[in-house]
C-alpha cells in the first residue's frame, strides 16, 4: 500500500478550505444565498431569469477593453446574440476571475452593442 503513516498535509488543508467556503458563501452584500424553491422557479414558464443587479454600459465598455484583451483578441459584440453572450460572459467571469458586477457590466455593454 502506498500510504504514508502521517496524515497528509493536504487533508489538513481541505477541512479549513471547506469551512472557509461555508463562510465565503455568505455574500458580501449581506444577502444570504438561497436556492430557489422549485415552486417558485416554475411559477411562470416565461418568467424572466432573476437578475440581481443591472450592468453599467460605460463601465462594461472599459472593462471589456481592459480585461478581455489581456488573454485574447477582443471579439466583436455582434459576433453573438444576447443569450450567447450571457453564457459566454459567465464562462469568462469564472475563467478570468471577474466579480459578478464586472461581469454584469461587460454583459450590459455587449448586449447593447450587438
Amino acid at each position: 500500500m502506498r500510504r504514508n503513516s502521517i496524515i497528509p498535509i493536504s487533508t489538513l488543508i481541505i477541512a479549513p478550505l471547506l469551512s472557509a467556503m461555508i463562510f465565503i458563501i455568505t455574500p458580501v452584500d449581506g444577502r444570504a444565498f438561497e436556492m430557489q424553491a422549485a415552486t417558485e422557479n416554475t411559477k411562470s414558464e416565461n418568467a424572466a431569469p432573476e437578475k440581481s443587479q443591472e450592468g453599467d454600459f460605460a463601465r462594461g465598455a472599459k472593462l471589456w477593453a481592459d480585461r478581455c484583451g489581456s488573454c485574447h483578441n477582443i471579439r466583436d459584440p455582434k459576433d453573438l446574440t444576447d443569450s450567447e453572450w450571457e453564457a459566454t460572459v459567465t464562462h469568462m467571469r469564472i475563467r478570468a476571475g471577474l466579480s459578478g458586477q464586472d461581469a454584469r457590466d461587460i454583459l450590459a455593454f455587449l448586449q447593447k452593442s450587438n
Binding site: 467556503m21 465565503i24 458563501i25 455574500p27 458580501v28 452584500d29 467571469r93 469564472i94 466579480s99 459578478g100
Partner: peptide
Amino acid sequence: IDLLLNDYVTLI
C-alpha cells in the same frame, strides 16, 4: 459544474 455562489465565489 460551476455554482455561482455570490459575486465573488464560484464553486467548481
